[in-house]
């Protein structure tokens, strides 16, 4: 039991370090958008997701509607549903309903990737450890970024806003090299979103992302359906 927990924490360490720097950028972004340090940390503590938080902060800053917030979070984070389904078939007998309720909170791209790559079934204890270290990194990084955002020179904090975007590129580019249909999905999404951004600027940027991503995924799925086991 205990060794499973430590093993999870250890596997989560590189994720936590990565999150520390990326959430530092989020903390700065949030404070720059007009949120307080407490609000920025509160978002990271209760959401534990990068893309959704950035989009959420944009909606808060633009005083968008709650419907906009719900649909945006739903579409941006719907990938977690797929990971959750996939992960639910990887867990061992130690997962009762309570464990599922707890562990599901910590399903992120990176945590999912590490968990699913384990050779055997995974225990609830392991998952809790695997979630803990990244969560500490995510929350501490947000706190540091939100606080230091007011202390560091403006020129430095401004350039750190690019960090989250850099991480997004690092997530999507390597798989795109191996599977060319992903390049189509990426290219279409970028083209549609750029078009919306410049031609229909009245559309909220978070919402534009949702429209672009859905259109692109549907078109790519029609042309290149994914076969079993991919």
């Amino acid at each position: 039991m205990r060794s499973d927990y430590l093993k999870g924490m250890y596997h989560g360490l590189p994720i936590g370090l990565g999150y520390l720097s990326v959430s530092f950028g989020f903390g700065i972004t949030a404070v720059n958008a007009g949120l307080s340090v407490l609000e920025a940390v509160g978002i990271s503590l209760t959401n534990l997701t990068s893309a959704g938080q950035v989009a959420g902060v944009a909606i808060i800053a633009a005083a968008g509607t709650l419907i906009e917030m719900i649909i945006t979070q739903l579409v941006i984070n719907i990938r977690y549903s797929l990971m959750a389904i996939s992960l639910s078939q990887k867990v061992d007998g130690s997962f009762n309903t309570l464990q599922r309720l707890l562990v599901s909170f910590g399903i992120t791209d990176e945590i999912y990737a590490v968990a699913i790559a384990q050779p055997n079934k995974i225990s609830a204890t392991y998952m809790k450890g695997l979630i803990l270290t990244p969560m500490i990194g995510w929350v501490c990084g947000t706190l540091l970024g939100a606080v230091a955002g007011n202390l560091l020179p403006q020129m430095l904090t401004a350039t750190m806003g690019i960090m989250l975007y850099g991480m997004f590129i690092a997530i999507i580019l390597p798989p795109a090299k191996k599977q060319h249909s992903i390049i189509l999905a990426i290219g279409l999404a970028v083209a549609i979103n750029t078009l919306l951004y410049y031609c229909l600027p009245m559309i909220n940027s978070g919402f534009a992302v949702v429209i672009s991503a859905l259109l692109s995924s549907v078109v790519t799925a029609l042309f290149f359906p994914v076969k079993e086991g991919e």
Partner: peptide, 8 residues
């Protein structure tokens, strides 16, 4: 992939 690309 589409979400992250459009966000970026």
């Amino acid at each position: 992939y589409a979400v992250l690309a459009a966000m970026t």
